[in-house]
Structures are given as C-alpha cells and as structure tokens.
Simulated assay, not measured.
Amino acid sequence: MEVNNSGRAGYITNSTLVSKKYETGKNPSFTQSAETNALGDQQAQASSTVSISGRALMVSRLFGSDAEEPPVLSSVRGNGEYMGVLPHHFLTHDDRNLLADIYEFAQKQGADLRHVDMLATDLGSYRKYDNGSLMGNFNDGQQYDSEGRLTTVSFTDADATTAEHIQNSDAFSSTRIDQGFLRYTLDPGHGIGRSSNFEFLEQMVSRFSTKGNDTTPLDPKFSTFAYNENNYIMHTADEVTLNIPRDTSSAEEDTSREALMADAKALPQQLNQSLLEAFIGKNDEKPTERSFIIKLFDWLKPPANK
C-alpha cells in the first residue's frame, strides 16, 4: 500500500508479485535443496508485473482504498448540505469512466498519478458548482485592491501558450474531456484556482480524442509531480476607480495620542520651571501648562456612559 497526496492509502502500482511455496516444516534459507531452488527459479520466471485496473485506481485514489464507488451527487445549487462534500462525489458517470481510463493509461506510462488526481479534483469542483455557474470570474471587473484600483489576472506565458494550443487543437472538438470544463479552466478568471497541470491536460485532451494522437508516449517528465505555484500573474491598474469609505476615527485617535505623548515628554521640564518660578514668586499659571494638564486628565478619565 502507499499513501497518496490526500492522506489516504492507495495501491502501489507497477508491483511485481512473486509467490514462494515451501514444504511444511521447512525453513527457507540460502542452503535449500536443489529441488526447492529449481522450483523457486521456475516461479520467479513465471512472475509478472501486476497492474491495478484503472477503475480500481480511480475508486481507491478518489474515494478511499477500501471504499465502494459512491453515487453521483448533484451540484450544490439547492443542496446546501452538500457544500462540505469532496468534489470527487460530484463527478458524473462519464467523468468517472474517462478518469478510470486516464488512470490506467498514466499507470502504464509510468506517470505520477497525482497528475490525474488534480485533474479529477478540478473536474469535480466544476461539477459541484453547477458546471462552474456558481463560481464568479475574477476578471469580471469587480475585484479591487485596498486602494480602490482594479485588479485582474492572467496566466503565465507558458500556461497561456499551452491553453491556446489546447483550444486551437484538432483534438479539442472531439475529446472525451468535457469541452465546457476545458473552456472554464482555460479561462484565467476561473483557472486561477485550478490544481491541474496544463501540459498534462493537453496530453490527455489529445490522447482521449478521436482526432488526437493515441500512439505517442507520455512525456517522461510526468513521472514526477509538483504542486502548481505562482501559476498566474496579478495585474493592478494605476488609476483608483473605486471610492473606498475609510474609518478615520482611529487615525485621528492615533494622532491625538501622539500629540499627547509629545506633550508628556516636555512635562517634567515645564513642572520644574513652574516650581522654580513659584519658589521665587513667579506663580502665575501659564495657559499652555493648564491646557496640557486638562488634556491629560480628559484623556485618562473613563468615557461617560451613553
């Protein structure tokens, strides 16, 4: 067994299973009889690589190693109780059949199956939110930064090129991967939240299409996996176009407090001067000193109950 990226136990693929049989009461060792060695050699020659079926891989990796395939759930539209359910449960029967084939193909090609896991997650999320209709588009002209400047996103140059290749390919019109999902995830405003690798997606669009190339081996680079990071570019407009109301009370309070603290630093010198003047007979109170003392007591006293 192995543990996949979601923390569930899964099957180890491309395993070689060799069965050894020994006579009752005999402990196998390197000093076994020639007969036992010959039997072991024959069994070793007869052993072969056992591949888990694509369907078993799909169920194991998406729903749990010991789970049965669950029923298909409808979108969360009108079914709020489904909001916390994992996206995989919303995959349609056609989605699951396709993913089973992709898992089997990826396994045979030696790819890291997490590439398929991420594709399944994106497709499941698309189904969960009513084929994406419940999800807003980041580039809808409604996103602003804290200063009121419009923000938009775009793909990196590499991903933008791959997205264009997919949409303009001959395989796009006949691929088994839902075209609505492809248009959705290849749109930067929606694709900002994707998990799947566009280059891997391009290979799957071509492979599972009547017009695609179903003989070209999968690129060896997919034998390793890395999570998508920094896969989009954020753009911020220069001009402020949204007036954001601001609470200035805290800023005014901070300014008042700073002025009060500045006065407090000068207080010892002022008091010393007042005491000296009182001692020599100059005891007329200065307006500035009285003003500061009044401010100090006003600031320290608790607020009146409203």
Rank of each mutant, 00 (worst) to 15 (best):
L119R: 10
S51C: 09
Q269C: 03
N97G: 11
I166R: 03
L98H: 00
L271H: 11
E23T: 07
S154F: 03
K21S: 14
V76D: 04
A100K: 10
F225L: 03
L39W: 00
G25D: 06
H235W: 02
R114Q: 15
T236C: 00
L182Y: 11
D101S: 15
S125D: 13
E289P: 04
V3I: 11
A264T: 08
F172G: 08
N79H: 15
T13L: 01
N243W: 06
T16D: 09
A171C: 13
E81M: 14
D140T: 01
N305Q: 05
H190E: 07
P28G: 00
M58R: 10
S60Q: 04
D145E: 00
S195F: 10
R96M: 02
L275S: 06
N231L: 03
G180H: 13
H93V: 10
D247M: 05
I294Y: 05
E277D: 15
Q143I: 06
S146P: 00
E239I: 01
V76R: 09
T215D: 10
L123I: 12
H88L: 01
S51L: 14
S133H: 08
G84W: 15
M58A: 14
S154D: 15
I192F: 05
N97S: 12
Y11L: 05
R8L: 02
Y82L: 15
G78Y: 08
K20R: 11
D247C: 02
R207A: 03
M1E: 09
E289Y: 14
S15L: 03
L182P: 12
S249G: 07
V18D: 03
L201H: 04
N79T: 08
S195A: 07
L267A: 06
I233D: 12
S60V: 09
E35N: 00
Q179T: 12
R194Q: 13
S133A: 13
G7F: 09
G7C: 02
V240Q: 14
S209E: 09
T185A: 14
D140P: 05
N272P: 00
D254A: 14
A237Q: 05
D117P: 08
R114E: 13
S196Q: 15
Q43E: 09
L218A: 05
Q269H: 11
Y22T: 01
I233F: 08
P245Q: 02
K128E: 04
T156K: 06
